[in-house]
Amino acid sequence: MFSRRIDKSPYGYLFIAPFFLVFFIFDLGPILYSFYLSFTDWSGFNTPTFIGLANYERLLQDTLFFKSIYNTLIIWILSIIPQLTIALTLALILHEKFIRGKHLFHAIFYFPNMVTPVTMGVLFALMFDWQNGSMNKLLMALGIVEDPVYWFNSPFLSQLIVASILMWQWFGFNMLVFLAGLQSIPEDLYEAAEIDGANKFQTAIKITLPLLRPVLIFTMITSVIGGMQIFDQPLMIGKGPENSTLTMVMHLYEAAFVRYEYGYGAAIAYGIFVLIAIATAFSMWMTKLKEKKEG
């Protein structure tokens, strides 16, 4: 018989070749080149001159860099806790059968996620403006405050505002992710629980949450990676009082594309990379550890 199949496997290389080609030119090339630049002094006019580890030494002494790490973390924590809490609560409520018009609520809560982050940043900057912002006007009209609050004069309030942009933008997305998770939990589990006489609260704690755990973990990890890179919204708000809303990527942007210290900017990029790698590894290790504990 001549039906011996010709091995078609090598064709696979052709199928994946464009992907890798583009990766090497537009991704890996720039990354390696950035690595080289991080050892140079380059202001844009001169040719980059090799200066060894000087940029990294500077990075370790740059209090603003450490401040930006701290800011990023604070903003992330301030946004992630309420964001996930609200998302989970809403998901649990909207999963209930008696709610009518579910789709409308999905749409309303998800909509902020569709809006461009830059636009969100500008909108919040305008809303929380000290003298002209609608937020102060509203608070004063409701009699909550007497004088306008100078939001962007307080480091904490500024961070809170940036965090609330992120929260507002992402809670709807996370809610949908949780809802998708909830829908994948089989109905009969709940029915069984109901027969056993468990109330709503008990089923939520005993059944829903444990089964949602993979989804929660996934959300946490992606939000760590995303949260470390916040840039668009705080850039529109500005650096904030005492640089309190200067995030890591903003620091990189300012060094490279505002002050034209490209070499130092490249060093900051690698600093950020190391931090994100550590944060990701840490959050993965945490979840693994927990899984082991719970068998």
Binding site: Y11, S34, Q229, A269
Partner: peptide, 30 residues
């Protein structure tokens, strides 16, 4: 397609997902 290095290459692709977008931005620009 079951080509040689299919597994390792795919693992490599997954690993690149972890690279933050801003890492190469300066080199990219230049």
């Amino acid at each position: 397609f079951d080509f040689k290095f299919n597994g390792p290459l795919f693992a490599f692709v997954l690993a690149t997902m972890m690279i933050p977008g801003q890492l190469g931005i300066i080199g990219f620009f230049k």
